[in-house]
Write a protein that binds this DNA or RNA. Structure first.
Length: 898
RNA sequence: GCUCGCUUAGCUCAGUUGGUAGAGCGCACGCUUCACACGCGUGAUGUCGCAGGUUCGAGUCCUGCAGCGAGCACCA
């Protein structure tokens, strides 16, 4: 068999995915066990406009590890893929394309424009869906969904109508965030607060009726809004203004009279303690205006330009030009008290970074209180969903649900779910599932539909139920809902996670998912957030190309929930690990004649050799640890455990201990059996690795001799032969052999000490030396005796002699082992007594320090009295062992005395 | 302002109920040892941010402080 020395990831990555997909291995239907437990995940749908970034790759890796692990464990497993139509983002992308043709969406008209968007979606969208295949994501493509699909759109309409009928969704005027560039309303969550260095302007308003000398000073960051002021507010307890409450001020530049009102909202400590109130252009002022029944004067329009109501002098000006003009005017009039530098926060459109203009507008809103009730109860009563990590996300989620404002649903866009509301000529509103239904209710066909669309997150909120068929009671909804876990980034807990819980519970009565796993964030190597604008993102596909998908997945899985700086060295190290696996398999395969997977292990375990009992024990222990780690989302622990089992236990020790048998020149039943054992352990190890490293494990598994249907999990009887359907090793308690692990550990120690002597004594690697072992303990002696030839091979010994008492010439390098054993390497003529004495002295010093510490602890009466008895006994045992070693060391040193 | 997280070897990070500090990379020395130089062997490296406290015993629990970071609220 000709196998290259270096693993080529690309070659394996190209071949297996298409097979898995075409053979239906990803679909839950592959599981034929009617009693199988169910495991399901819905993907956080990436935007159609998106391209794969590290955050996706991280989430997808974790979802795939869980899905593959559960599938191999016999679960009926479903991972639903799909995409989000991403309202504004997508519309902007297509508008940008049109711009190249010198067109706007208005030139095309709504219908043509939407055709164009769909065309774009089919030609250029869905990049991530292709890239997911590269990642190895075992999603069920037959269930792929898009939020604008007919089925999902129906779910959106159904949900909207039902909420409207219950009064949860309403149409009305309210203060909203308006993006002057995108020309649409936005929800609070689509707006980012940014701190900004600006100015605070102190403006003076004369008191009405006086001679103009008495003035009230207000401080503002937005002087231009003063044109729309309809009051000035002060704190009722503020003595400075008490006599003025109820009086009127003359609003400069307009001549309008406005009242002074008292309101607790005003902080007397801030600024001048008097606040200008612009109900039409500030959320707080709006609320205050409602409390005091103040009139609304709209002075800024949808393009962030001043309206006619701002006065002829300002009409048509941009808000910033108006600001300068207003300030100049105040200065002229001697009403500008001062201007100070001031840092404040400003709201920007999350999409285009334009400064938001708060406006009063007629929109559709969703009351959130009622929807939040059941998720809050569920959290309080049952602690569900379970957040990983629980801290801080459970609290963050709960606080959010407890403090919800109404959600602005409507968007003045074309791409998205059209609001299912129709109006007749009289202005009556008909909210219906279809135009037919609306017509029937209206009794006329002369209806116009609301031109607006819904917030993209409205359909996302329904994702877990809508992808599974809601509002119909489909078998999928029945089987796979609630889903098992949601894996996502922390920035969409409010935008998405909480809303899925709200909508899911509202209409199915059940939570959307059992667990919520919030991944860490990947930063660049300087600790900066990766972003397009900084152009510091690391492209996962480039990393795949350079190091392979499997290696990248190991790095990503290890990130788990902590924020991490991207570190390419780590990928390289796991690339090396993949190569190690490749070469271990290469060795097994080059020596596989006469052998096959599953063979080699005698049914009577008592007949097994020590190293076989040992590796089987290590394998089962590993399986147990890894299985439990994945269940608890401890991916890092799982990866570490697998890495060290494969590299240290299997490669460094088991293969080496088996080598003489496996590579015997002459064929024999014993050689066949040894080869089969190595193959069998390898095959199990590949299964354990498969959820993390799907490609290399499949590639190698397919090469193993003796692969057959028996290896598949019983739930997949008759399915194609693939490792992804093999049973995940369970980690059998009965095969964990503490004694064998201890015994092999003493062999490992012996080998390591002799290697240390060889290295320190500068013995040429090729030179064989005699090794003398002394062990008082008969059992230990037996271990060394029966392992003598293996030990000799590993330390390049010309001979190994084991006896009760160490019987070595004076000119030997020596070491003391655990359990009172000793080892010596006779070095007549090669040894420098002074060097050796120094080496031993250092070791003695180390032991002395430890003994001192232990003695101190044991001399402490409180410790002996209060610590658990077994702990005390353990320390005594350790001290006794050190005593034994120290004695042996002293004797050794005496042997070197001049 | 409120809430929370992080601070462990040169670097990136693990350390699950408190009980002798770990990995990978890097570094030093030696190896073309018949699976692998993307390898093998050996070795060096930490007063676990600072100061207190609880405890027989603290990287691990509590309090305070410092630096870095996150979220929420306010910002007239």
């Amino acid at each position: 068999m000709d196998i290259p020395k270096t693993y080529d990831p690309k070659q394996a990555e190209e071949r297996h995915y298409a097979n898995w997909e075409s053979q239906g291995c990803f679909a839950p239907e592959i599981n034929r066990d009617p009693q199988a437990p169910v495991y399901s995940i819905v993907i956080p749908p990436p935007n159609v406009t998106g391209s794969l970034h590290m955050g996706h790759a991280l989430q997808h890796t974790l979802m795939d590890v869980l899905t593959r692990f559960k599938r191999m464990s016999g679960y009926r497993t479903l991972w639903v893929p799909g995409e989000d139509h991403a309202g504004i983002s997508t519309q902007i992308v297509v508008e940008r394309e049109l711009k190249k043709e010198k067109l706007t969406r208005h030139d095309l008209g709504r219908e043509k424009f939407l055709e164009r968007v769909w065309q774009w979606r089919h030609e250029s969208g869905s990049r991530i869906m292709q890239q997911m295949r590269r990642e190895g994501a075992s999603v069920d493509w037959s269930r792929q969904r898009f939020t604008m699909d007919e089925g999902l759109s129906r779910a959106v309409r159904e949900f909207f109508v039902r909420c409207y009928e219950e009064g949860i969704i309403y149409h009305g005027e309210g203060m909203i965030n308006w993006c002057p560039k995108d020309q649409t309303a936005l929800s609070d969550l689509e707006v980012d607060k940014e701190s900004q260095a600006g100015k605070l302007y102190y403006l003076q308003y004369p008191v009405s009726g006086g001679d103009g000398d008495r003035r009230v000073t207000v401080a503002t960051t937005r002087p231009e809004t003063m044109l729309g002021d309809t009051a000035v507010a002060v704190n009722p307890k503020d003595e400075r203004y008490q006599d003025l409450v109820g009086a009127a001020l003359v609003l400069p530049l307009t001549g309008r009279e406005i009242p002074i009102v008292a309101d607790d909202f005003v902080d007397p400590e801030f600024g001048t303690g008097a606040v200008k109130v612009t109900p039409a252009h500030d959320p707080n002022d709006y609320a205050l205006g409602l409390r005091h029944e103040l009139p609304l004067v709209k002075v800024i329009d949808q393009h962030a330009r001043m309206t006619a109501d701002a006065g002829s002098e300002f009409e048509g000006l941009d808000r910033y030009e108006a600001r300068e003009r207003v300030v100049a005017k105040f200065e002229e009039l001697g009403l500008l008290e001062k201007v100070v530098d001031y840092e404040f926060s400003i709201s920007k459109c999350g999409r285009c970074r334009t400064v938001i203009e708060p406006l009063i507008s007629l929109q559709w809103f969703c009351k959130q209180g009622e929807l939040a009730r059941r998720p809050l109860e569920l959290m309080r009563e049952r602690h569900e969903p379970r957040f990983v990590p629980e801290n801080p996300y459970e609290k963050v989620y709960t606080n959010w649900l407890e403090n919800l404002h109404d959600w602005t649903l409507s968007r003045q866009l074309w791409w998205g779910h059209r609001i299912p509301a129709w109006y007749d000529k009289e202005g009556n509103t008909y909210v219906a599932r279809s135009i037919e239904e609306a017509r029937e209710r209206a009794g006329t066909s002369e209806l116009t539909q609301d031109p607006d669309v819904l917030d993209t997150w409205f359909s996302s909120a329904l994702w877990p139920i809508s992808t599974l068929g809601w509002p119909d009671e489909t078998p999928d909804l029945d089987t796979f809902y609630p889903t098992s876990v949601l894996i996502t980034a922390r920035d969409i807990i409010f935008l998405w996670v909480s809303r899925m819980m709200m909508t899911g519970m509202k209409f199915t009565g059940e939570k959307a998912f059992d667990d919520v796993f919030i991944t860490g964030t990947i930063f660049d190597k300087h600790g900066q957030r990766m972003s397009k604008s900084k152009n510091n993102g690391v492209d996962p596909l480039e990393i795949f190309d350079k190091y392979g998908v499997d290696a990248t997945r190991l790095v990503l899985a290890s990130i788990e929930t902590t924020d991490t700086r991207w570190n390419e060295n780590q990928v390289e190290s796991y690339r090396n690990f993949a190569n190690k696996i490749w070469n271990a398999a290469r060795f097994c395969l080059m020596n596989s004649e006469g052998a096959q997977v599953g063979g080699g292990f005698d049914e009577d375990r008592a007949k097994w050799a020590l190293h076989d009992r040992w590796i089987v024990s290590r394998l089962n222990r590993t399986a147990r640890v890894v299985g439990e780690a994945i269940e608890k989302y401890q991916f890092h622990l799982a990866v570490q455990t697998l890495y060290h089992f494969f590299w240290d236990d299997f490669c460094d020790w088991y293969i080496e201990l088996s080598k003489s048998e496996v590579t015997a020149v002459d064929a024999s039943p014993a050689r066949d059996a040894a080869r089969s054992r190595v193959l069998t352990v390898l095959e199990q190890a590949l299964r354990l690795l498969h959820p993390f490293m799907p490609f290399i494990t499949e590639e190698l598994w397919q090469m193993l001799p003796g692969i057959n249907e028996q290896l598949l999990h019983p739930a997949y009887a008759g399915a194609p032969l693939t490792i992804m359907l093999a049973a995940y090793p369970q980690g059998q308690e009965a095969l964990i052999d503490e004694e064998a692990e201890r015994e092999v550990q003493s062999i490992i120690e012996l080998v390591s000490r002799v290697r240390n002597i060889r290295s320190e004594m500068n013995i040429k690697p090729g030179e064989a030396v005699p090794v003398v072992v002394g062990a008082a303990d008969a059992k230990l002696r037996a271990v060394f005796e029966s392992g003598a030839s293996q030990i000799a091979r590993l330390v390049r010994a010309s001979s190994i002699s084991v006896s009760e008492n160490l019987d070595a010439p004076r000119a030997s390098a020596r070491a003391v082992l655990a359990g009172g054993a000793e080892v010596a390497v006779p070095l007549e003529g090669l040894i420098d007594f002074a060097v050796e004495r120094e080496r031993l002295r250092k070791e003695q010093e180390k032991l002395g320090k430890e003994a001192e510490r232990l003695e101190g602890q044991l001399a402490n009466e409180n410790f002996v009295a209060r610590a658990p008895a077994e702990k005390v006994a353990e320390l005594r045992q350790r001290l006794a062992d050190i005593g034994q070693r120290t004695t042996a060391l002293r004797e050794n040193m005496e042997a070197f005395a001049e």
